[in-house]
Amino acid sequence: MSRRLRLLVLGVGGAGLAVLFALAAFRLPRFGGTFHPYGQRTLPNALARHTPNVISSINFDQRALDTLGEELILMASALAAVLVLRTVRAEQEDSAGEHAYGPAQVFDALRITGYLLLPVTLMTGVYIVAHGYLSPGGGFQGGVVLGSAIHLVYLAGDYPALARIRPVPMFEAGEALAAGAFVVLALWFAGQVKAMNAVVGLEVGCAFVLALAKFFEQALLVRKDS
């Protein structure tokens, strides 16, 4: 399909979508109004179960089964990313020690900032996970903070150091264990918001680290056989 034809099809489709969307939007309840039937039904339930953060209550208690599906999508796509990025036959992988991206090219001030921020960021991640039932936050958000925190080592130091502090098999095991634990929690113990937050935090953190590890390998270590 030529670019012109494609743009034409897009124009027709986009205009149709815009008209239908506008027609639908003007039939919605007034913006900022008080008509929220579903939200109002969730509030008393969340308060009755002593979960001040209503969003955590919805995710891990009232709609725990949906979150189970989301969790499995997360695991499946992390797994798929790892599979897609595996080293293929015609390539070989350098060992992590051969590349010391970092100290030589990084300013001392930046390096110190990175090392200082690492414990603070890890602590923030743990706080966001642990207080997810009480204040804004939870396993998903905290897990991402935790997963990205250890990459400060790469930004501040070097790749070998990062490879040392994140042994990939351990994170694979952690990911699988956390996913299994979440299935058990969601099916039999839904409503254990604190435990579910912790498990989700572990799983998201592990998935994040694994996917980033594969991208790092592709960018730094894999090269084609010549």
Partner: peptide, 19 residues
């Protein structure tokens, strides 16, 4: 919709869509 520091009677936005 986080009730750790507000009264339960306070109006909050719809938590379901936020989840």
């Amino acid at each position: 919709p986080v009730f750790s520091d507000i009264k339960p009677t306070r109006n909050v936005v719809d938590p379901l869509v936020q989840a």
